[in-house]
């Protein structure tokens, strides 16, 4: 189920532009890791290399290795489609499929990988995934209504349900709470705490309190200036990053004395 992520000397390019340089990071299975850093520092770019989503942009490529347990996901024999079915992703803004019902949204991943589910099996998948996303009680009576009719926070939890329904090894979250109100944010954070028992969770966040609340380890990314590549500055236990970081840059950022 849950897998270890290991990046070795990873460079990310968009065409000739080096966006992220020399990342070495080892992410434990069944843990929550937060990526923090200023805008444009490459944390989202790096997150998207973990499931090869950055390749959606033409010209994007990667140097170095990215191991999922022992397999390099950038091996030439690896299909990005397979990688993405094993490494799920939750986006900044909730994006349930607007033309599908809540139930069909949860089952979207199964529809893709061609698994034929009987009615009772799919009922079970839907219920488990929605319970896993703490959404079941709110939507169990309207599973056939469109997912876009839910509130923002509920939509985001629906997206999480859609992601965990296919039982991925890793869940990536790209600022999952930035479009949500504080109460919905709290609901998602509670959920992240439960998800780490089963999955490897990596979350990008601009909210340092959130990083401190949900993660066990934190990675701080920074950029030297416009046009320069983003770099991983420090990666350590979250408590250490926020109380006693070993790099000056990190201390400036987490204490708000940035720049």
């Amino acid at each position: 189920m849950s897998k270890r992520i290991n990046a070795i000397d990873l460079n990310v390019y968009y065409g000739d532009f080096l966006a992220v340089e020399g990342v070495n990071i080892d992410i434990e299975p069944r843990s929550v890791t937060a990526f923090i850093g200023p805008s444009g520092c490459g944390k989202t770019t790096f997150l998207r290399t973990l499931n090869r989503m950055h390749e959606v942009l033409p010209g994007a490529r990667v140097e170095g290795q990215l191991l999922l347990d022992d397999d390099n996901i950038y091996d030439t024999a690896v299909d990005p489609v397979t990688v993405r079915s094993m490494v799920g992703m939750v986006f900044q803004r909730p994006n349930p499929f607007p033309t599908m019902s809540i139930r069909d949204n949860v089952l979207a991943g199964y529809k893709l990988n061609g698994t034929r589910l009987s009615r009772s099996q799919s009922d079970q998948v839907v219920e488990e995934a929605l319970k896993g996303a703490n959404l079941w009680n709110e939507v169990k009576d309207r599973l056939d209504k469109p997912g876009s009719g839910l509130s923002g926070g509920q939509q985001q939890r629906l997206c999480i349900a859609r992601t965990i329904a296919v039982k991925p090894d890793v869940i990536l979250m790209d600022e999952p709470c930035s479009a949500l109100d504080p109460i919905s944010t709290l609901a998602i954070e509670d959920l992240i705490n439960e998800l780490k028992d089963t999955y490897t969770v990596v979350i990008v966040t601009h909210n340092m309190q959130q990083a401190a609340r949900v993660s066990e380890k934190t990675a701080f990314f920074n950029i030297a200036g416009t046009g320069k590549p983003g770099k991983l500055i420090e990666y350590d236990e979250t408590t250490k990053i926020f109380s006693n970081p070993s790099k000056k840059d990190t201390e400036n950022y987490v204490s708000g004395r940035f720049g």
């Binding site: 993405r84 079915s85 799920g88 986006f91 499929f97 979207a108 991943g109 893709l112 859609r162 992601t163």
Partner: peptide, 15 residues
């Protein structure tokens, strides 16, 4: 087509 929805499908492992 919203990029958001395209990426939602791709991130689920869609070709």
């Amino acid at each position: 087509t919203p990029k958001l929805h395209e990426e939602a499908a791709l991130a689920l492992g869609a070709t």
